[in-house]
Each structure stands twice: as C-alpha cells, then as structure tokens.
C-alpha cells in the first residue's frame, strides 16, 4: 500500500498535528518505508485467528458504586494553561 502526501495531511489533521512542509515530506517517506515493512504481515493467513488485544486473563474488574473525594477545584485547575471562573478556558468553539 502506498501512502501519499495527501494521506499524510489527512492523518495529521485527524491527529491534530500542524506539520511543516518539511515534516510532511519526511513523514511521507518514512511512513512509506515502515508500511512497506509491515506489509510482511499480509503473508500470513490469519483467517480464523482471534485477535489478541490483551494478554491477561479476561476477568472483568469492577468497583463498587461508592463516592470518593474529588480534587478541590483549585487543584483540578492548577495545571491548566488558562482557567477562569472555576473552568478551563479555551479558544471559543465555533459550531
């Protein structure tokens, strides 16, 4: 499968990365090489093989429905680049 500059731009958009022209060229080439390498996987017939997404025994972990203390508002916001009125402040969202 070959990856085009357009694909890279689309992916960068999905990933919210503002790539420079230079980065786009670089990544197009590098991703192409990596993807050609992983192409190797298609040699294998995996029909009927269940995917492995975790290696631990599939025993669901539950917690009881109990309220535990939250952070104080100021601690919740302490690390925020911008906050005001008890809220995280972000550039205006235009629908």
């Amino acid at each position: 499968m070959s990856i085009t500059k357009k694909d890279v731009l689309h992916v960068a958009d999905l990933a919210r990365l503002a790539l420079t022209e230079k980065e786009i060229d670089l990544y197009t080439g590098q991703l192409q090489r990596i993807l050609s390498y992983v192409e190797k996987l298609s040699e294998l017939d995996t029909s009927g093989v269940a995917p492995t997404t975790t290696t631990v025994p599939p025993e669901t972990a539950f917690r009881e429905d109990r309220v535990t203390p939250s952070l104080a508002q100021e601690d919740a916001l302490r690390n925020a680049p911008l906050s005001e009125k008890g809220c995280f402040k972000v550039p205006k969202i235009i629908e």
Binding site: M1, V11, Y27, Q30, L31, L35, L44, T46, T52, T53
Partner: peptide, 30 residues
C-alpha cells in the same frame, strides 16, 4: 512521537483498520 502518532492514527483510520491494527492483533495471537 509525532511519527508514531501519525503511524498509529493511520493504522486505525477508516479503511486501514482491518489491514493494519486488526491484522497485527491477529498475528500477535500467533
């Protein structure tokens, strides 16, 4: 990090999931 985010986003994106992420998870079983 950006390179890997790009690769990972690509392998999950519409049309590529089966060929990449899913296939890789199956080979992981092997």
């Amino acid at each position: 990090v950006k390179r890997r985010i790009m690769l990972g986003t690509y392998s999950l994106s519409a049309g590529y999931y089966d060929a990449y992420y899913k296939k890789a998870s199956e080979v992981r079983t092997l």
